[in-house]
Structure formats: C-alpha cells, structure tokens
C-alpha cells in the first residue's frame, strides 16, 4: 500500500496563512485594536500591539480593562472559530481565496465572558492563547490566558461560553 506524497510545505503554509488572514482581516474591530495572530501548525498566539489609544489609566499608565477584556474575547472567538474550521480548511472544502472575498462561515457567538484582572496591563505588547475546554455541536467553553513579559505571570485570564454556528445559519 502506497501513501500519497505529502503536500509541499509552501502549499500547506500558504493555505493555512491565507485562511487565517481572511478570518482575522474581515473583522474591523480586530484591526482597530491591532491584534495580530502568530500560527504554529494549528496553534494560535494572539498579540495585542500596544498603542497609546489602549491606555485606560493615564496616570500609571495602564492598559484599559476593556481593551484587556476585548483582547481576551477576540483571542477566544478567533481560536474557537479557527479550530472549528480547521478540518474544512485542510480538506479544501473552504477556499481561502473565497474567504478573503468575504464569503466566510458564521462565527461563534459569545454567550458570556468573564475576565480576571490579575495585574495591571503595562504599556507594552501583550500575548494570549486560548484553550478550548469543550467544543460541542451547539456550545463551547473556552479559557484564555494573557501575559506580557513572563508567560508564567499572567496579567489577565478569561473564560467564556459560545454558541456555535449551526448548519442552517446562512451568511446574511
């Protein structure tokens, strides 16, 4: 029995990066906050690229709690959506070129989201990774951790529940 030849690395990377870029670039609020994503295989790390407009307390200064919450939620939704679509991106059922034109599947919807503020957010870049605790057909639970200088010293963590898009949900 012969195995089919693995795809060339460029093809694999191009497909995955194009699909991820299409998902992220389509959302104005992600661009507004300047959150970018690093990909290693299917693992995503979100990066909040610091800007003065993120400041909440100008006296300290510290990142606005709302920016931290938004950053965690964006990380959770994009990571969950990415994991949800991964199989279809890999199989070719979803075409990154079509996705880039705005033909995107519906995103998961946030049901609730809780943020723990562990330390004040320093005026510099922040990073976050999401763990999908459970991905059900209708509901998903996601945990997110965010850090700045030290991965072991989180400045915030969040967890939330999401409603997964159903097959009947047509893009509007």
């Amino acid at each position: 029995m012969s195995r089919s030849r693995p795809e060339p690395i460029q093809v694999v990377k191009q497909r995955r990066d194009a699909a991820l870029n299409a998902l992220v670039d389509s959302i104005p609020y992600i661009r507004f906050l300047d959150v970018t994503f690093d990909r290693r295989g299917d693992e995503l790390t979100a990066q909040l690229n610091f800007a003065d407009k993120h400041i909440g307390n100008p006296l300290l200064p510290a990142i606005h709690g709302g920016v931290t919450a938004a950053f965690l939620e964006i990380t959770a939704v994009v990571s969950l959506n990415w994991a949800h679509l991964w199989e279809r991106i890999e199989s070719g059922a979803l075409d990154p070129e079509e996705m880039a034109k705005g033909n995107l599947p519906r995103q998961p919807k946030t049901i609730d989201f809780t943020v723990d503020y562990l330390r004040s957010g320093l005026p510099r870049d922040a990073y976050a990774r999401a763990t999908i605790s459970r991905a059900g057909r209708r509901y998903a639970s996601v945990h997110v951790e965010a850090w700045q200088d030290h991965k072991s010293k989180l400045f915030a963590q969040g967890s939330g529940h999401f409603l997964m898009p159903q097959a009947a949900d047509k893009p509007s």
């Binding site: 104005p28 609020y29 964006i74 519906r106």
Partner: peptide
C-alpha cells in the same frame, strides 16, 4: 464601523461592549 465584530451583519464586537461596560 471600526467597532464591527461581525462583518456580515455589521454588529458591534462584544469586546467594544465590554470596554463600555468596564468604563
């Protein structure tokens, strides 16, 4: 428009509502 979280419907991102709530 810069606060849109769902480009297909034009709905504001949950994160922007979080920022408003927090403030």
């Amino acid at each position: 428009a810069k606060l849109i979280g769902d480009p297909q419907s034009g709905v504001i991102a949950g994160g922007a509502v979080s920022a408003l709530m927090d403030t």
